[in-house]
Write a protein that binds this DNA or RNA. Structure first.
Length: 449
RNA sequence: GGCCACGUGGCGGAAUGGUUACGCAGAGGAUUGCAAAUCCUUUUAUUCCAGUUCGAUUCUGGACGUGGCCUCCA
């Protein structure tokens, strides 16, 4: 096997991937906070880390790879949304989790091995907090528990930040009861209107970063291989996770490789809920097969920004339509040459360009290339449905098939009579209904555009 | 203000110290009643300025520009 390179945010360079444990690859990816429909920006880490999961499974065998992706179902945004929409929290998180799962399915993502929910791990979080207090990394103040950032000398290592500079920037939450403005909350009190759990510090709820530390430890151990998420999680989320976990466990590595996907942008600006420039994954379903979005996203390297526009999807749709000509149920081993770009920090654009060349060869009748193409598509999560399902997906039928056949018959009579004005008129009519026709070898074929 | 990333042809997007990926679009041709599809051929690029070098788009420094993080965010 060739070396597998991954870019590690911690070292800011590509490193050779060396598993911590033989035949036991462990990867954790930050999942959604379930308060609203996932948007296209959220789709990116889903697709990128699904790809990584698939590659790891290929390199190390499926049974040797554990992929954990959490669901954060307790959070202030959730509380806020539930109050605004006047819906019970449990109900809200259940509904949004369902949306999320539907979207994952649409995008053709494999299920993680474990998908732990924060609310089902409150006791683990309380234990972790207790431990941090015992070890003097955290302190209790009026029902709050804070992590004492000054006690952890490596704080800022991942995000390349200096504590004094963070303090100087006045954007951190100023609070009377914190020792230091950069200290972050591990546990906070809840009012009667807010969800809460009993704890040694009174009824309350966990702070944001705690769930990932607690749940990654439970399912992957104190140290594991890969921790992933979007670029915007580097600070403070991942930085704080590192602080919590390393201090509680007296480790210094926690996750060995930190991987972050770039943003989806709109006119070069980050797609985000707060800017309102987002489009939900759900909105695409009526128009495009999920594979189209997957291919479009993978045609940009995962660390580069992915600028959103309609053309990208149209391009991807066309390409997939072409490639599907060589869809095969059978799967063969992928040539090393074809696989290699993926081993270089998931260079999917280069990988995809090879697929184009396989397509060219396949078109010229090379069966081996056709098989390579089909199998290579499957490796990155494409071709997840057969030709027929693909062809009939996402089509809005404006015209009945019988009617199409009648019109084509009529048109061909007109053509025989050399009444081309009439035949062109019928073609235009069908065209307006989303039907493209091709006269080929004396026959007329039609398809949905 | 601190820190970070990025700047490649009309668009998208890789790679590389020297031989100009790839896709879409465009142009020409074959084919067609005309188209479509397909096939063949083909034009166009490395933000700017210094430096290192025989040679830089690639390395170094600077300028300009864009975006991001420093507050919730994938």
């Amino acid at each position: 096997m060739n070396k597998f390179f991954l870019y590690n945010t911690l070292s800011r360079q590509k490193e050779v991937f060396k598993p911590k444990f033989e035949n036991d690859i462990r990867m954790y990816v930050c999942g959604p906070t379930v308060y609203d429909h996932p948007h296209v920006g959220n789709a990116r880490p889903l697709i990128v880390f699904d790809l990584l999961f698939r590659i790891l499974q290929k390199l190390y065998k499926s049974e040797n790879v554990t992929y954990v992706r959490n669901i954060t179902d307790i959070d202030d945004k959730i509380i806020e949304t539930s109050q605004k929409q006047n819906i019970e929290i449990g109900q809200l998180t259940k509904i949004v989790t369902k949306y999320f799962h539907d979207d994952c399915l649409y995008l053709g993502c494999l299920n993680p091995n474990v998908e732990p929910k924060a609310t089902e791990h409150i006791s683990e979080m309380i234990e972790l907090t207790k431990k941090l207090i015992e070890l003097n990394y955290a302190y209790v103040e009026s029902g709050h528990v804070y992590f004492d950032v000054m006690k952890y000398e490596d704080y800022g290592k991942l995000s390349n930040k200096k504590i004094d500079e963070l303090v100087a920037g006045s954007r951190v939450e100023i609070s009377e009861i914190k020792k230091n403005p950069v200290d972050f909350v591990l546990w906070k009190p809840s009012t009667d209107q807010e969800p809460g759990w009993n704890s040694p510090w009174g009824k309350g709820r966990p702070g944001w970063h705690l769930e990932c530390s607690a749940m990654s430890e439970k399912y992957l151990g104190k140290e594991f291989d890969i921790h992933g998420g979007g670029l915007d999680l580097i600070f403070p989320h991942h930085e704080n996770e590192i602080a919590q976990s390393n201090c509680a466990n007296s480790t210094d590595s926690f996750a060995k490789y930190w991987m972050h996907n770039g943003y989806v942008t709109v006119n070069k600006q980050k797609m985000s809920k707060s800017l309102g420039n987002f489009i939900t994954i759900d909105e695409l379903k009526s128009k495009y097969d999920g594979q189209v979005l997957r291919l479009a996203m993978l045609s940009t390297h995962y660390r580069q920004p992915f600028d959103w526009n309609d053309k990208i999807l149209e391009d991807a749709k066309k390409i997939l339509g072409k490639w599907y000509e060589f869809y095969s149920q059978e799967t063969i081993e992928i040539n090393e040459e074809n696989l290699n770009p993926l081993l270089d920090d998931l260079n999917t654009p280069l990988y995809i360009s090879n697929l184009h060349s396989l397509y060219d060869k396949a078109s010229k009748g090379d069966r081996q290339s056709a098989m390579q193409l089909s199998s290579s598509c499957k490796l990155i999560g494409l071709f997840n449905k057969d030709l027929e399902t693909w062809s009939s997906s996402t089509i809005s039928k404006l015209i009945d098939e019988n009617e199409i056949k009648n019109l084509l018959h009529e048109r061909n009579i007109a053509r025989e009579q050399k009444n081309f004005a009439k035949s062109d008129q019928i073609r235009e009519l069908l065209n307006s209904k989303g039907i493209a026709i091709e006269d080929k070898d004396g026959k007329t074929n039609w398809k949905y555009k």
